[in-house]
Amino acid sequence: MSQGLFSADMGQVWALIGAALATFLAGSGSAIGVGMGGRAAAGVLTEKPELFAKVLILQLLPGTQGIYGLLVAFVTLGKIGVLGGTAPTLQQGLLYFAACLPIGVAGLISAIHQGKASAASISLLAKRPDSFGRAMLLPAMVETYAILALLVSILTVSSL
């Protein structure tokens, strides 16, 4: 089995697994994070529907990781002979796979934690509706690490 996975014609498969992981892990993290934010938002909107626009922004903050994962996957697919480019060798395929991991893993973890921070910020907004700026800034800090992972993934995939 392992010999099969590492045979010379498996480069495209490895690259595809990388693209799938970037989409799946980062997307799952975003789904969990946005879900958390959504539940907190629903709690606040039950009592204060006028806060809809503000809580919606906070709820959507953890959704960006899923978009980053998708972006890396598209660039990868465009270079490995699926949407364009040519099928990579085994070594190149493994490199694509490794390049997709940062946004996959960091996207998953950061989106879940950003969801928690968003839910907490929505609770803050519930008590102090005038604190939107501060409430938004706190979960946005988590985004930094997703952006760093995106940079590493996208630069690596682009340079291959």
Binding site: M36, R39, A40, A41, A42, G43, V44, T46, E47, K48, A119, I122, S123, L124, A126, K127
Partner: peptide, 14 residues
Amino acid sequence: YIYEVARIRVKEGS
């Protein structure tokens, strides 16, 4: 209890 806590936070305002 994310939903429940968020609702309680609004109630705490009163």
